[in-house]
Amino acid sequence: MFDDLMRAGWPALDEVEVGGWVARFSGGVTQRANAVVPAVAPPDVEAALRQVEALYAARGLPVIFQLGPSAQPTGLDEVLAARGYEFGSPTSVQTVTLGRLDGGAGVEIADAPSEEWLDLWWRVDGRGDRSAMDVAVKILAGGPALYASLRDAGGVAAVGRLALVGEWGGIYCMAVREDVRRRGHGAAVLSGLLRAGQERGITRAWLHVRAENTAALSLYERFGFTEASRYHYRSHRGQEPVEHVHPEP
């Protein structure tokens, strides 16, 4: 279930099925949109691996697998490790069933990101040049979503995105301007997004957070989020990553 939600919430620009695995490509912008989702065990794992590696090599990208509890076949993580794939970015998938929400006053909600929204998000969380940002904008536009902005005297102080996938809402792109952190802006944006999502019919929400990000985990815990799953990445160490690929969330 979470694999499908994550694919819809952060859609790759191109997907190629390889024996039940889904190889995702987005010009190297973000790990998630350039990783293999091993949803179904291929008939021949070795042949599928060779095909996947050839597909990524042809695009000049490192081979990255996103591995959670549903990864197939069982033991794929060990197979990749033995093949020289490196472990990285352990991530907690958190969910919540939405109830009454308070807060979020002053948060602006839009159906598309403004230039100011994009500027702050990219300054805080982006990697690469304008061409990489252009790819990121295409990823954002790959499905319906809400975009939250909170302003102060200095302009946009915090932003966030809520992907709309049926009854689910997915939290992405949470970013707070460096000079105004630890002032509750992230909580305000999160509250504003979830309230706006409720108005659009969502009843549950999910998010991804790096397992070591204690500050973010504390914030999400206050909203009732609890861990539902975990995943990590395995990347081929024999090929240098392109500049745009970076850890997430």
Rank of each mutant, 00 (worst) to 15 (best):
G103N: 14
D44W: 10
G60L: 14
D102H: 12
P43C: 10
T91C: 10
A12T: 13
F25H: 10
L101P: 07
Q31P: 03
E116T: 07
A71Y: 00
M6I: 15
V79N: 01
V107A: 04
T30D: 08
T95M: 11
A12L: 13
A33F: 08
Q94M: 15
V22N: 06
G75T: 04
G84K: 03
S92V: 05
F87V: 06
N34K: 01
L67W: 15
G28D: 08
E53L: 07
L80P: 03
P11V: 08
V52E: 02
P43M: 00
P90C: 03
A57W: 07
R100A: 14
G28V: 09
Q51E: 15
Q66H: 11
P73T: 09
E53M: 12
E115T: 10
L120T: 01
P90A: 06
E53C: 11
A112M: 11
L120G: 00
R7W: 12
Q66L: 12
L98Q: 09
V63L: 12
L98I: 06
G84F: 03
A12Q: 13
A8D: 14
F65S: 11
L118S: 05
L101S: 14
F25S: 10
W117L: 02
P42C: 06
G19I: 09
R59F: 12
W21A: 02
